[in-house]
């Protein structure tokens, strides 16, 4: 099979795989693990747009996820809103957060943008702890209801799986539309050369702000889904460590690609749950793997950046280009 047909078939294969998982997996915990994979994938799709395509770094993406999670929790638990409304509110609040960070960051590039997003992320993690009346402080927020859309409630492990991966599917579709058309080229142009992009009439301010907002929106929606799936959130989920995990997934996945980062998100999420994945794995072994999980993320970042700066997607493209040439 040559690379071109494989590329055409890839989305179908991905959808088929996603559909098979809940049928093949009977273990509820394992299904939940795959649901978490989807939640992380949703964040990473947004980060791939911002970082992988537009070249704008965000070291605070967990903050947007947290904004979404807390908004949805507050709206459903404290205000008694229907879940869907809280979900929408989560997206709106996270997108506003993205806008608020993006506008003053416009002048910043490289190191400074990275520091600004890092500082923003840390500030938000402090805020999640300090804003106790809204967030429940360090203890977090519990008793968050399951997601529901109208009369349909998503309680079972498989329905939650569908919900999350459905959202991922929609996000990928939207992201694919963006990246394959004019805005995507503007984003990649921005990444390549801001001067060149300006000379082509690209509205670099507009592209940066919009990409930031879309990216924050996706992270916020992922946060809302997490809150609904688990029913409990706390500040320890939305820390710098989480932001770096998302960055690791995006980098390993590769630049200018959606499929790569999604695959990486799934793979690196599974690292956390090796015990669920490999039945009969001794507890200690699983724990050891878990204690090295962040080492894996850190090393993955370093190795990929040094040896394969375009990530898995880059390796794949190079290989398929080689195949076509021969």
């Amino acid at each position: 099979m040559n690379a071109r047909t494989l590329r055409a078939l890839a989305p179908l294969i991905a959808v088929a795989l996603a559909l098979i998982v809940p049928l093949a997996v009977s273990d509820r915990f394992l299904l939940k693990v795959f649901t978490f994979c989807g939640i992380n994938a949703l964040v990473v799709v947004g980060l791939a747009l911002l970082f992988g395509y537009a070249g704008q770094v965000s070291l605070g993406h967990a903050a947007f996820m947290g904004l979404g999670a807390y908004t949805s929790a507050y709206c459903t638990v404290e205000l008694g809103w229907p879940w869907l409304l809280g979900f929408v509110a989560a997206g709106v609040v996270a997108a506003l957060g993205g806008l608020i960070l993006a506008i003053p960051s416009l002048r910043l590039k490289g190191y400074y943008l990275a520091m600004a997003t890092l500082g923003f992320g840390l500030l938000m993690s402090l805020a999640f702890i300090q804003a106790e009346p809204i967030t429940g402080g360090v203890d977090g927020f519990s008793g968050i209801p399951f997601p529901s859309i109208g009369p349909v409630e998503f309680r079972s492990a498989s329905s939650l799986y569908w919900l999350v991966w459905g959202a991922v599917g929609i996000a990928v579709l939207v992201a694919h539309n963006i990246t394959s058309l004019r805005p995507g080229r503007a984003m990649r142009a921005l990444h390549g050369s801001e001067l060149g992009a300006q000379a082509c009439g690209v509205d670099i301010v507009g592209v940066k702000v919009r990409t930031f907002v879309v990216s924050a929106l996706m992270a916020g929606l992922a946060g809302a889904l997490y809150a609904g799936v688990v029913g409990f959130i706390s500040p320890s989920l939305f820390t710098l460590t989480a932001s770096i995990t998302f960055i690791a997934m995006t980098i390993v996945g590769g630049t200018s690609s959606l499929a790569g980062p999604i695959l990486a998100a799934v793979a690196l999420t599974l690292v956390q749950y090796s015990d669920a994945l490999i039945p009969g794995l001794p507890r200690e072994t699983a724990q050891t793997i878990q204690s090295y999980q962040e080492d894996i993320y850190g090393l993955a970042i370093v190795l990929i950046v040094i040896f394969a700066p375009r990530g898995l997607a880059g390796l794949w493209k190079r290989r398929s280009a080689g195949n076509e040439a021969s």
Binding site: I244, Y297, V305, I306
Partner: peptide, 10 residues
Amino acid sequence: IMVTIGGAVV
């Protein structure tokens, strides 16, 4: 940025 962040984690 990425290498030093990854290195920090390590």
